[in-house]
Nucleic acid binder design. Sequence first.
DNA 1: GCTGCCGGTCCAGGTCATCCACGGCCTGAG
DNA 2: CTCAGGCCGTGGATGACCTGGACCGGCAGC
Lengths: 151, 151
Amino acid sequence: MDDLDRQLLGELQRDATQSYAALGQAVGLSAGGAHERVRKLRGQGVIRRTTIEVDPSAVGRGVAAFVLVEAQAWMGAPSVRAALEALPEVVEAHIIAGPATLLVKVRTATTEELQTALRHLFAIEGVSGTQTIVVLETFFERPLSTDVGEG
Amino acid sequence: MDDLDRQLLGELQRDATQSYAALGQAVGLSAGGAHERVRKLRGQGVIRRTTIEVDPSAVGRGVAAFVLVEAQAWMGAPSVRAALEALPEVVEAHIIAGPATLLVKVRTATTEELQTALRHLFAIEGVSGTQTIVVLETFFERPLSTDVGEG
DNA sequence: GCTGCCGGTCCAGGTCATCCACGGCCTGAG
DNA sequence: CTCAGGCCGTGGATGACCTGGACCGGCAGC
């Protein structure tokens, strides 16, 4: 995991369709060398998968909201996780420290569907309340920078 | 944008490296037909780009947090957006309705760096306070479901 | 029923991924 | 210093794949 690998990750995040020849040229490597490094990054699990970014509004997911879920029970159980995964509107779920125990990101077509999603969240065992933060405008959602931080 | 398109989107989200032959077989189409539909979806902007998912901890971004930013000024200005984009730790930024005006998602290597990121957020014009929600465990972060909602 | 059009299938040419052998560089031991 | 060993990148060969075009069937409008 050196600087060349990070450059490769950045290039692939930007455009994963480019050829290994172009990829190698971008970082100063032959096509074969670039291919070998990318293969290893996949093997190590650094690259989890190759995927596409879809326009949310084009597939009926134009409304976004973050929901803070308050609970009277421990929410780290696998059953809770499974219940959240079963809801297609839920795109992220995190156990958090702070005013609530669970934070989920929800995407729906309309605010009416958002309400339906909230009802489904309430139906999960132990949930005692929710606080919903509706997104008015998304500035950006981007892949993580592969630059080194301070260390 | 019919059901076949949605199936193609789902397949590509799952694995964008598969051949058009495999893609066509998955949805009951020839390779050429699948290619033509995917080409159109790209042209329409439904498919924004092809990218890779990177393991956050492998690139020094193992710590995640959501920050509610309180402000005394209007935060929708392009200058605010630019200031947020300039911070590599900020992976998402949204204008929200609710207890604050801005919600940003931050990823850093350590909690010390998280503190640095908060200092940078405070440096943005008009910011009067922050409330940080630290992620203890991420259940999942997944692509949006391409199933049709209610409508 | 005829005609034009949209979409799918099939095919061909050129590009690209993928594997392998060769060679240079760094490292550690004698 | 010298030499052996391993790691990594390079270059070439081959086979698969992308990609565009020609052909064909179904559907709508006249």
